[in-house]
């Protein structure tokens, strides 16, 4: 019997034990957990990839890696995984309620990443709606770390209210970075909000990019991704250079449970990040 990559530890069947070492409240219902391997850690994650995170006794859910940190004491590999989790149901609420010291299980890395290498040499747009910024944050880090590789870089953020904007401290720091345009728009402004009001799509008018050589990385609610991609295509960005990250139910991450099908695509394996040339027609079919 040939056993393909099943031998890669933790990536196929069984979660590896990790431990919560930090818990940062981001918004009213969202926290970022820093997880450190209790023993051996997983293989490195590429920006955009996700893990299956196990809340003891409750279940596992797919969660993007929103960052990595060099770890402290524990773990031979020592790399900490950051996960930003919104409590929406049984398992995510279980993860949201964890405290430093609590154990979790993690499997991965799974799925396709943003693959920013293809964007090198051209302008780059990062467009995030709400929690969609979580999987995009490692990509923004990459854009900040290697500005010389890219043309004009813009990060456009949308949220329901100012209080729903993620990583506010960091976003402020990004705004100060040279050559990076950061824009934010909210649906419902609160007191003290001096940014834009409206959808993130409206911010596209502010970003400077040369459409034919632009790469766009988009994540957020499906309606937001659709509106953004349509507008970008309308402005002349090639559909295959618009990458979106899609969400469907996922129970295994290994292409076996069947739940994440989107027509011909198994989203845990062929996605979650897809080019709009592929994703657009599929999302256009109702209830696919």
């Amino acid at each position: 019997m040939t056993a393909p990559a099943a031998a890669v530890r933790g990536s196929a069947a069984v979660p590896l034990p990790y431990r919560v070492v930090r818990r940062d409240e981001e918004t009213a219902d969202t926290v970022t957990l820093a997880l450190e391997p209790a023993g051996e850690g997983l293989e490195p994650f590429r920006p955009g990839q996700f893990a299956m995170v196990y809340a003891f006794g409750r279940g596992e859910v797919p969660v993007s890696v929103s960052g990595v940190e060099r770890g402290g004491s524990g773990g031979r590999r020592g790399e900490r995984l950051l996960h930003t989790v919104r409590a929406v149901g049984a398992v995510s609420a279980g993860l949201h309620g964890l405290r430093p010291g609590d154990g979790v299980g993690v499997r991965g890395p799974y799925g396709t990443g943003w693959e920013p290498a293809a964007a090198e040499g051209g302008d780059v747009l990062v467009v995030a709606g709400g929690l969609g910024l979580a999987p995009l944050r490692p990509l923004v880090r990459e854009l900040l770390a290697r500005p010389e590789r890219y043309g004009r870089r813009s990060v456009l953020l949308g949220a329901r209210t100012p209080a729903d904007l993620l990583y506010r401290e960091q976003v402020r720091a990004w705004s100060a970075a040279e050559g990076l345009l950061v824009g934010a728009a909210v649906d419902r402004p609160g007191p003290g909000w001096d940014g834009d009001v409206g959808t993130v799509v409206a911010l596209l008018g502010r970003a400077r990019f040369h459409p034919p050589d632009t790469a766009a990385f988009v994540c957020g609610p499906e309606v937001m991704m659709r509106a953004t991609a349509r507008e970008l295509v309308h402005r002349g960005v090639p559909a295959h250079r618009i990458r979106v990250s899609l969400e469907r139910t996922m129970h295994c991450g290994t292409g076996h449970c069947g739940h994440c099908q989107l027509g011909p695509v198994l989203l845990c394996r062929d996605g979650p990040v897809l080019g709009w040339d592929r994703a657009g027609p599929l999302l256009g079919v109702r209830e696919l």
Partner: peptide, 14 residues
């Protein structure tokens, strides 16, 4: 598929 045990310190063994 697997079993997990939680120790007194919260750590998991899978």
């Amino acid at each position: 598929r697997w079993s997990a045990d939680r120790g007194p310190d919260g750590a998991l063994a899978v």
